[in-house]
Design a binder for these strands. Structure first.
Length: 294
DNA sequence: CATGAGCGG
C-alpha cells in the first residue's frame, strides 16, 4: 500500500515567493513612495512606508548623496582611472585640455562621380605613362596577343576568339617578351581554351561570351531606368547588361541606353518586336548598336 | 535628336 504523507512533501516554493516576507502582500495598503531631489548639492530624499515585524506601519526616510553630473555617467573603473597620475605629454597640461588632439592635416576627399579637372589630369597622365612607359619599358602590353602600347588585354581584338590567330600560337618568344615586360613569371596561367590541343569551339556557337550583341535603345523617357529596360527586354532572352546613359552633371537620363544579349538571335527578336513599341508615351527606337569606340 | 562608365598593368 502506498501512502502519501502530505506533510512529508518537501517545501517547494515558487520563485515568485522566494523573497517574500510576511506582510508584504499588504504593501498595496501603504502610501506610495515619495522621492524628493536630488537638489543642487546632489542630495536625494526618499520617503517610504512598510509594515514592521509586529505588523505596524512605519515610515522610512532615506537620504542619499547622488554623484555630481560630471561623474554621473562614469563607471567605477573610469572614476578610478581619473585618479591616476598624469604621464607623457599630459603631465604639464591642465585636466581636460589638449587631451584630444586636433589634426591640422589636410585631407582631400575625392568624390567618385566628380569629373573634376584633377581627375582628368590623372587620367591623361596615366595614359601617357601607359603609352610611353617608365624606364624604357612599355607598360601597356596585351596579355592575349602580346602587342605593346596598342591596347589593353580587355580590348584585344582577339579576346573573344576561342583561339588566337596563327601569329600568336606556338610563339613563346612573344609571350616571353610580354611576360618579361610585365614582370610575370614563367608558367603563367593559360586558359583552357588557349591550351595546346584545346578543343576548338565552333564559330557558330552563340553561347560564346560576346559583348557585341549590343542593342541601342533611343527615345526613352527621362525616367526610364536600367531595371525598367531589363524588365522590357528580358522576355526575349538572357540579357548580359543594361545601360542607360545618364548625364553626369544633372543626373537625368539622356534618353538612350543599351541592352546586351547573350544570344544574338534574342537580340534580333527584341529589335524586331520592340522597335517602334510604345513605351511611356514614347515610341522606342531599337536597333543594333555600333560597337563602342575608344 | 541621340552611340555607354570605368577598370586594369
Amino acid at each position: 500500500m502506498y501512502v502519501v504523507d502530505e506533510s512529508a512533501k518537501p517545501t517547494k516554493m515558487r520563485w515568485g515567493e522566494l523573497d517574500e516576507e510576511d506582510g508584504e502582500a499588504l504593501d498595496f495598503l501603504l502610501p506610495p513612495k515619495q522621492v524628493i531631489g536630488p537638489d543642487e548639492n546632489g542630495i536625494k530624499k526618499e520617503t517610504g512606508y512598510k509594515f514592521n515585524d509586529d505588523g505596524n506601519k512605519v515610515k522610512i526616510t532615506t537620504t542619499t548623496r547622488v554623484r555630481k553630473l560630471a561623474n554621473a555617467r562614469l563607471s567605477k573603473r573610469a572614476v578610478e582611472r581619473r585618479n591616476w597620475s598624469k604621464f607623457g605629454d599630459a603631465i604639464n597640461e591642465d585636466v581636460g585640455s589638449r587631451l584630444t588632439m586636433v589634426s591640422t592635416e589636410e585631407i582631400l576627399l575625392e568624390r567618385p562621380r566628380d569629373h573634376g579637372a584633377k581627375a582628368e589630369e590623372t587620367k591623361i597622365a596615366g595614359d601617357n605613362l601607359a603609352q610611353l612607359g617608365i624606364g624604357g619599358a612599355v607598360l601597356m602590353v596585351c596579355r592575349t596577343c602580346g602587342k605593346k602600347g596598342d591596347h589593353w588585354t580587355s580590348r584585344c581584338p582577339f579576346k573573344d576568339l576561342a583561339q588566337p590567330p596563327e601569329t600568336f600560337i606556338d610563339k613563346p618568344a612573344s609571350t616571353e617578351t610580354a611576360m618579361a615586360a610585365s614582370g610575370a613569371t614563367k608558367g603563367a596561367y593559360v586558359p583552357p581554351s588557349m591550351r595546346e590541343g584545346a578543343e576548338r569551339i565552333g564559330g557558330s556557337d552563340m553561347r560564346r561570351r560576346n559583348d557585341e550583341n549590343s542593342v541601342r535603345v533611343t527615345n526613352l523617357s527621362e525616367d526610364t531606368r536600367e531595371p525598367d529596360l531589363l524588365e522590357l527586354f528580358r522576355t526575349f532572352g538572357s540579357v548580359s547588361r543594361v545601360y542607360v546613359a545618364i548625364d553626369q552633371k544633372s543626373g537625368v537620363s539622356r534618353g538612350f541606353g543599351f541592352v546586351n544579349f547573350v544570344n544574338k538571335e534574342d537580340a534580333e527578336r527584341a529589335i524586331n518586336k520592340l522597335n517602334g513599341y510604345g513605351y511611356d508615351n514614347l515610341i522606342l527606337r531599337v536597333e543594333w548598336a555600333t560597337p563602342r569606340s575608344n
